[in-house]
Each structure stands twice: as C-alpha cells, then as structure tokens.
Amino acid sequence: MSSFAAQLGPLRKARGLSLGAVGRLIGMAAPNLSVALSGKQDVRGSTLEAIATALDAEWVLVPREHLAEVQRTVSGKATGPDRAAPTSVDLLLGESDA
C-alpha cells in the first residue's frame, strides 16, 4: 500500500480540498504540512489523525497478512459475501426466498 502522504493527494482531490485548506482545518500552515508529509521529518500520530479527520477518513494500521485484501476492498475489486443469499440458518429453518 502506498504511503499515507501518497494516499492523501487523491483523497484531498476527491474531497475538493487543497493542501492549504487541509492545513487550515488542522491549524497548520500549508508549507509546514507539505514538509511534514514529504517524509523529511517525523510527524506525530496526532497530526496524522487530524489530517484523516479533516478528510473525513480514518487512519488505521493494517496487519501485513491482511494488506492485499484491504487494498482490493479499498480499490473496489474485492469480492465479498453475497449478503442477499440465504444463510445456512435460513436454509435450515426454511426461511429462504429461493
């Protein structure tokens, strides 16, 4: 998965926010935010959380063993359970629509 900073750009654009607008939302000057996200300085977790919140997103850690599936899900390419299909309990009780 790409870095937090790399994910930030497309999400900012999707939300219609400039880096300056995000900076204003979190109380950080755009140049300082740009430097922080460049990877040239350490960024506090609370700053990353504030950026995510400003973008109406969540900052989460994904265990590596689940990373590929999370990437597929986020990209919209994952296949998930068919929620419309009857469950085994429905079938057992004869409550399916099938």
Rank of each mutant, 00 (worst) to 15 (best):
T87Y: 13
E49Y: 05
A5C: 09
K13Q: 15
A30V: 05
S38N: 05
L93G: 05
L92Q: 11
L17S: 01
R83M: 12
A6N: 12
S18D: 06
A84P: 00
P31I: 13
V70Y: 04
E49D: 11
S88P: 10
K40Y: 14
A68Q: 11
P10Y: 14
L37N: 02
A30I: 00
P10Q: 13
L8I: 11
D56H: 12
A78N: 02
A5V: 06
L67Q: 13
E95D: 07
S2D: 14
R44H: 13
D97E: 11
E69N: 02
R64H: 13
L55H: 03
A50H: 09
R72C: 01
L17A: 09
V22Y: 00
G23I: 02
L8W: 13
A50Q: 06
A29E: 15
S38C: 12
A36D: 01
Q7Y: 10
V70A: 10
D82K: 11
S75Y: 04
R44G: 09
A85L: 02
I26L: 10
I51L: 01
T87Q: 12
G20E: 14
V74A: 04
S2F: 05
A78H: 06
D42P: 02
L33F: 06
A14S: 15
R64Q: 14
R24I: 07
D82M: 08
V22M: 06
T87A: 03
G9D: 15
L48D: 00
